[in-house]
Design a protein around this nucleic acid. Sequence first.
DNA 1: CTAACCATGTAAATAGTTACATGATTAA
DNA 2: TTAATCATGTAACTATTTACATGGTTAG
Lengths: 174, 174
Amino acid sequence: MIELVTLGMLMQGRMSGYDIKKITEQTIGIFYKMSYGSLYPALKRLVEENYVTEEETNDSKNKKLYAVTEKGQRHFIEWLREPLKANKREYMVKIFFYDYLDEETRLRNIGDYQRQIARQLEQMNAVQAVVSKELEQLEHKESYYYRVSTMHYGLNFFHMENEWLKQIMNKKEF
Amino acid sequence: MIELVTLGMLMQGRMSGYDIKKITEQTIGIFYKMSYGSLYPALKRLVEENYVTEEETNDSKNKKLYAVTEKGQRHFIEWLREPLKANKREYMVKIFFYDYLDEETRLRNIGDYQRQIARQLEQMNAVQAVVSKELEQLEHKESYYYRVSTMHYGLNFFHMENEWLKQIMNKKEF
DNA sequence: CTAACCATGTAAATAGTTACATGATTAA
DNA sequence: TTAATCATGTAACTATTTACATGGTTAG
């Protein structure tokens, strides 16, 4: 994952490891955490595999500039094209980079994913209905408050996600 | 984490490893994934540390029943009492178990966490305002569509989370 | 002059996934 | 009789975090 996020960040131009981390935080920091302890080894591997080039700047700050190669770009796009998987945390990271993907693939992937989410939402609604009924017959409902609240959170969350996916499929303005 | 989730699940009564995984999926499956490859070694460790006891049922299915000890309960509650940390994925898992925590601690922890989220939301709103203005002056805005959409997702998400936290603090019915 | 930030990296530890291996029970 | 589910486990691998280590630059 770290390799692919790194490649994705380098798609917008050459930069240092430090910058990669900073920009990652500023953009997809909510969905993906990056630490130097994984970033620098990843950059080393990417250079070995010829996915990126390394260039030393011999100015005062002795930083290194990394740039993605054509091979690296192909590798990145290949990953980006893959279907979005629910229960994998990576889908938001992938969608962030979707401006680099062709319209056909992205609409297909988002559509497929949205239908998965919609199905899960239906299931959760069904479960919620059952749980609600069961709960009515129980004494001291207070002792289930947080369990039940967590279920509602899940419901809210899937509902929000479903709506958002439908919106971006129709290229709605914000 | 796996150890603590396992202990939490055992708080509602003795059960087998298989059951622990099933119930985990049914309840907090959206927030936390559990695999046998991590569960069984975790159960072994928990037995070694005297946090749970193991009992073999010699019926047809030769399953093992695990139960949390008093020491295990203390260890679990200690973890549960710790402040909820934003950017750690575990907060929803913790809140799911909050019925086991005393009212004072849980209100304090949820309150602190909610204020963190509210602050992050403010920051994101400020960033969004800046980005929106910058975007207006750019040509071919279409090529930033998914980047911008991802930002909006983050905003929606934090807004939803903030509202939900305020609701559970006031013990609102659903 | 000092705190915040820029900048790169390693080693050890921690955590978890994936694939494999096995076999019993239950419902259609 | 067969597919789904119940049931436990290991080994190899993959990934990532945390702590440490170092030193330069910039703005107030």
